[in-house]
Every structure is written in C-alpha cells, then in structure tokens.
Design a protein around this nucleic acid. Structure first.
Lengths: 332, 332
DNA sequence: ATGAAAGCGCTAACAT
DNA sequence: ATGTTAGCGCTTTCAT
C-alpha cells in the first residue's frame, strides 16, 4: 500500500540503513545520496513519523495548554509559540482548558501519552499550586501565571506592578471610586488584584472588586449588575481583554458614557482597543515575546535538565488613550 | 525507565494482550479488568501513543491548516474544530501558512508524514486550484475558500451574495462611490470581489477595488494611500476582520470621520466590531458552526470514502450598525 | 561508507 | 476469556 523505507532502499539498490542515513543527514557518499534522493522523489515516499518517534524516542512535539485560544492574549502567544516551534523542527499540540481543572488534568495526561518533549502551560491557580513538575516526565514552562516558589520555569508579567500602574494613572486623572474586575480562577487575577488593592490602600481608598469567570458573557452580566447599583464606581479596571470587552458592552447597553460617566482601563493592547469608543487605556503585555521566550526557555531546559528553575518577569507598558482622559472625567 | 505495557502485565499477572484489551475496552472479565486497572493505577502507566499509532495505523489526528490564527475568523473556527475533534477522540495539529504557498506545501507534506486521519484546510487560491485530493492519502475538507468544481468537500460562505448584501445596504444609505478591499491571494477575496462588482454594475456604478495581503499593516497602509487620493471613496467595504481594523486605523490616523466622511462596512461580526467607533456594520459568518460542520464532514467522509464531494454553502447575516448610518452620511 | 539485524511499545491474528 | 506471537516502519548498534 503505502511506500516504506525498504521500498525506497530496494529501488535505489541500497540498504534501509543507508536510506535512513540520507533522511537524517548521516554519513553517506555523494553518489549514493543522489541515487537515494532520486528514488525518494520518484516514489513519493513520506517517512512515517509515528515509527520514527517510537524508535528514536524523540517526539519533537510540544504541548501548549491554555484556557481559551479566543482570549486575544493566548491567540498571540500561540502564534509566537508555533512560529518558534516549527523553526526548531517541532510540532505543537494545542489544548483549550476553559480554566477547568479536570480538563487540565486530562490534557496533562494526554501530553504524557504523546511523550511530548515539553509543555508550555497557563494553569489555573488551583493546578499551579499542586503541579509537581518532577512526576510529569517532561519539562514545563508556565506562562501568564507562575506556580509556587521556583519549582517551575515561568515567564510572566509583573502583574501587581501592572495593576498599580493602571490604578495610579486613574488616581492621577482624579478618579476615587475605582472598581476592579478579576478572573476568579487564575493566579494572574489574584496578583493583579493584590496590586490593585495595594495602590488604593496607599491612598486610604477602598478597593471594591468582583471576581468572575474569564468570559465575555460573565463580564458583561457582572458589570451590568454593578452599574445598576446605587454607588457605582466612576472607574473600572478589567483584568483581561475579554473582560474589558464585557465592560464596554455593558456600559454601552446601560447607556453609561465612557469616559464621561465611567473611566475604563484594562489589560492587553490588542488592535481593537485603539478603535473602541474613545480609545482604551490599556496595559500592554509583550505578547509575542512572551511566547518566544517560553519556547526558548523550554529548549534551554531540555539542553540543561539539571539547571535551577528560572522565572522571567517582564514589565508591562501603560498605553494611555481616551477612555481615561482627565478633562472628560467627573472630578472629585 | 518508563513503564511499558509488559510491566503492567507482569504486575497484574496477565499477558500484555489482556492489558491491551483493558485499555481498548475489549472483552475482559470483570475480575481481571479490576486487577489490571489497579496495576495501571499503581504503576502510573501511560500508553505510548506513537507505538499505538504505528501498530494500529490509526493516528486519530487531524490537521488544521489556516493562514493565521490571529485572524478572528480562524481563531473561532479553530476553537470549534478543536472542541469537535477532542469530543471525537482526535488530536489537532494547527498550522499557520500566512497565505504562503510554500508553507502550504510544506505543511501538507508534514500531514502526510503524520499519517493524519484528515485535514481541514483554508487554502490560498493558487493552492486550491491545483490541489489534488486523491494524491494526498487523506481526505480534505476545505473551509472559507472552496476549490474547483466538486473535487473537494467544502464548507463556505456564499461570498458573492454576502458582498452584494453589503453593497446593497450602502446603496440604500445613499452611497455611490463605494470602494472595496480584498485579499489578493484568497479565493474568498475573489468571490467577494465578484459580488461587489455585480451589485454595483446593476446600478451602472464603478467598482473601484484594491487587492492586498491579508494583514493589518498592509490594509492600514493601502487605505492611508487611498484616502489621500483626490476622488477618495465615500464608503469602504473590507473583505475580512483584519482588513476592517486596518480601514478604521487608517481613517482615524487621517482624521477622516466615520461615518460622516466615510461609511465603513466589513466581514466578520467579532465582539470588537460592536465597540469600535459608532459600531461597525458587518456581515456575520456562522463561524463556530463552520468549524463544527467541517469536522462533521470530515468524519462522514472517513465513514464513506466513496461518497461524492459535497459543498455546504452557508449564508451570512447583515448586522447594521452606526458606521453606515444614513442620517450621518453625505447624500448624493 | 555501507549492511545486517535487533527492537522501540504496542495491537491484532491466531490459538487455546 | 485469555495467551502467544508476529510485525507496524523506523533508527541504531554492531559488523564489515
């Protein structure tokens, strides 16, 4: 049926070992290499990667486990990871967990069965805390959310600092009743919440916060409720791009003007944030770089397995736009 | 080193075949099954999928080849495909081609080496025209862009009709100088262009169009140039979500007000289109459904290989928002 | 530089 | 219902 290496060998008049060497750039004389390559070309032979992986014990596969590829942060990270992976001759298996610990466990198990070379993983808080990298059989680089103290390699944003930057900016604009919306299952959410609380506490201000599932729908519903309350906030900080969208949709539905009646700021400088409403003030993460860094760390870890775990902390950049502009805000 | 099936067999006091049967839900007595499952649990055994695939000749893997996962259309399609695939016990390999025919060929070749069960593919026009599904060794379902007459299964939008809907709407709003921006390498672009031309021709109107690479940057640059020309259009139709973003960015940079000085409409009803500017008029594709339909067609094709190729054509829905609102437009 | 042969871990005949 | 065994297609010793 399908052409195997022995068919190519027979056609070229050499042994299967020689064909294998041609395929793997092993030591073969030029004359023989030519003959073999011609036979491969003529037959349309395609090596069977399952067989190669089984025999060589190298799968050249990495797993990328995120909560939802539709979250713009992960969309961009995934593209960066795939670019870097294919450049390094690796393929990527992408998994969406929806922040569901059961799915996380299932996919981690799948990664073991695939005998992946390594995994890049954005875990929920729950999983991050209990993750034992030793028992998995492959190295893990955490992204977006770091696990507990130095057990895993990780590349993350300085989330507390980032949240503080946003709060400071709103304070400078004269806002006082500043509310925050954070993911309830992520470490990211917890860290950003901590920065949010710290920055407001320094001024002796309250830090009203809501925790929610990281989806557009959940955010929109939560914000709609919040805006209907008597002492609604004059500014809102959204912990990720999806939640930020939800804030804007809810404000629009409720007829609350941005920034006149509500200042809005959030995370992730996606293209649309420049175009929405008066332009959205956001904290930009170096998204593509996070993906490539994670991949690079994974490759380094594979090269030096004994090396101590490293955590790369990247800083965000505040991008000020109209959604928090002072002149339009209710001051005092 | 790692635990193999024979280790589990030895621990449970049975043969490897019995363990394999337990794994595959074969006929095994309850008592033995219990014993084996206990041994699996105790040892932390994980089946080696490469070995299983090699032996069984079933990879349970499908390939998803798109131009760029960051294109919101493909982001959503990919999520739908992955959901459906994992439900069917299949893995997905995602590939980004950037509409580069060389990359397309490379990934198609990779799919052969993976011995994938099937592929869902959004090809460039060039590749779509020359694609020989017979020679590939696996079934292909095309999405977004159909190939030539009935050679491949495909699920597509009625692109010409969709473009006509947008044009008709703009005509109703009183626009006359309507420009179009289309992907230069995609069949989608060509089909949408055809509908665009047809709708305008019926009114005896010119149909100025520009063809470009499907990226945010290319669109922004092209539109910036166009808006600077003397007889610039009073309305612009963008052939996909990325290009639509580019139109808006360019208009904003050039200080051209939407919709007062320029009406804007485009494809893909992403969340952000509701929030950008006055809200964007878009043609909504049933995105998630396209992904699931493609997966379903692939599974059907696998079940009935001889079946004649089918093309599922889905209709888009016009979503009217502020970016084309009549009262604000320069009439005549 | 090349070939012969073993075996990666598993499933599927075939036997019992 | 369970065991024995061959072999999926390849890479990798070990010879020569």
């Amino acid at each position: 049926m399908t052409i195997r290496i022995k068919d190519v060998a027979a056609a070229a008049g050499v042994s299967v070992a020689t064909v294998s060497r041609v395929l793997g750039n092993g030591p073969v004389s030029d004359a023989v290499r030519k003959k073999v390559e011609a036979a491969i070309e003529a037959s349309g032979y395609r090596p069977n990667l399952s067989a190669r992986r089984l025999r060589s014990q190298h799968t050249q596969t990495i797993g990328l486990i995120v909560s939802d590829i539709r979250n713009p942060f992960f969309t961009n990270v995934s593209r960066a990871v795939e670019d870097a992976a294919y450049e390094a001759g690796m393929r990527v298996i992408l998994c969406n967990t929806d922040e569901n610990p059961d799915k996380e466990a299932m996919y981690l198990r799948l990664m073991q069965e695939e005998r992946v070379t390594g995994v890049i993983f954005a875990p929920t808080r729950q999983t991050a805390e209990t993750l034992d990298p030793a028992g998995l059989g492959f190295p893990v680089v955490l992204i977006d959310r770091a696990g507990p103290s130095g057990l895993n390699d990780a590349v993350v944003l300085d989330n507390a600092q980032a949240a503080e930057l946003l709060v400071e900016h709103l304070l400078e604009q004269g806002c006082r009743r500043i509310g925050g919306l954070f993911g309830k299952t992520s470490t990211t959410g917890a860290e950003r919440h901590a920065g949010f609380v710290a920055a407001l506490a320094r001024r002796g201000l309250p830090a009203p916060a809501r925790f929610l599932a990281p989806s557009l729908e959940a955010a929109e519903a939560e914000v709609a409720r919040w805006l209907a309350e008597p002492d609604r906030p004059e500014a809102l900080i959204a912990s990720n791009g999806l939640v930020l969208m939800g804030v804007l949709k809810a404000a629009r539905r409720a007829g609350v003007a941005v920034p006149d009646e509500l200042a809005v700021a959030g995370f992730d400088n996606d293209a649309w944030t420049e175009l929405a409403g008066p332009g959205l003030t956001v904290l930009e993460q170096p998204v593509y770089e996070i993906g490539r860094t994670a991949m690079a760390m994974l490759l380094e870890r594979l090269a030096r397995p004994g090396q101590v775990a490293r955590k790369v902390v990247l800083s965000g950049r505040l991008v000020v736009r109209g959604s928090t502009r002072r002149e339009a805000l209710p001051v005092g």
